[in-house]
Simulated assay, not measured.
Amino acid sequence: MTASDQCQTQGKIERWHQTLKNRILLENYFLPGDLERQIEASIQHYNHQQYHERLNNLTPWFGRASATIK
């Protein structure tokens, strides 16, 4: 892995954290478990429902599975 690849990976991770933070800040949480459930729902949505142009409009989970099959 080159330094350029590491920078791109770090940027993707930082972007994901920003997206998660913005989504979480849209709601109020009254019980301790509410925030945990929202984070879990966001991760599930990102991995299994949200389509990503970079992955030929597949979800990350499906894209990873189809790459493994190939």
Rank of each mutant, 00 (worst) to 15 (best):
L35Y: 13
T2L: 05
Q8S: 07
D34K: 05
Y29D: 11
L35M: 15
Q18P: 00
H48G: 05
Q8G: 04
E53Q: 12
D5G: 14
F62N: 00
Y46H: 07
Y29E: 10
L26A: 10
G63A: 03
G63K: 01
S42M: 11
I24L: 15
S42F: 12
A65T: 05
K12D: 11
G63Q: 01
E14I: 01
E27W: 06
A65C: 12
N22K: 08
L20R: 11
Y46N: 04
T19C: 12
L26Q: 11
L25D: 07
R23E: 08
T68S: 14
N57K: 04
Q10K: 09
I43L: 07
G11S: 11
F30P: 07
E53W: 07
K12Q: 12
R64V: 09
K12R: 11
A3W: 10
L26H: 10
R54I: 04
Q18I: 03
T19V: 14
P32C: 02
K70L: 00
H48A: 09
P32A: 02
P60A: 00
E40S: 08
L31F: 15
F62P: 00
R37G: 09
A67Q: 04
A41T: 04
D5A: 10
Q6W: 02
T59D: 03
I43G: 07
N56S: 14
N47E: 10
Q50I: 04
S42Q: 10
E40Q: 14
A41W: 06
T9G: 03
E36D: 14
I39S: 06
S4G: 08
L25W: 03
A41H: 08
N47R: 04
P60L: 02
W16L: 09
D34T: 07
E27G: 03
E53V: 12
T2V: 12
K70I: 00
S66W: 01
H48C: 09
R23V: 02
D5R: 08
A41G: 03
H45D: 07
S66A: 13
I69F: 01
R37C: 12
N57H: 11
I43M: 12
K21T: 14
D34A: 09
L20G: 06
F62D: 01
I39L: 09
E27S: 12
I39F: 02
L20K: 09
C7R: 15
Q18S: 10
H52N: 10
R23I: 04
D5M: 13
K70C: 02
Y29F: 15
H48T: 04
Y51L: 15
N22H: 14
N47S: 04
T59A: 03
T9E: 09
D5I: 08
W61R: 02
I69W: 03
T68M: 10
G33M: 11
I43P: 03
R37S: 13
Q6L: 02
C7K: 13
T59K: 01
F30W: 14
L58N: 06
W16C: 08
Q49T: 09
L25R: 08
T19E: 13
Q50G: 10
F30K: 12
H45E: 07
L58A: 05
P32L: 01
G33D: 14
E36R: 12
R15E: 02
I13Q: 11
L58P: 00
L35A: 10
Q6G: 02
A41M: 08
T68Y: 11
H17L: 08
F62H: 00
Y46V: 02
A41N: 13
H52K: 04
G63H: 01
T19F: 11
E53F: 10
I39T: 06
T9N: 06
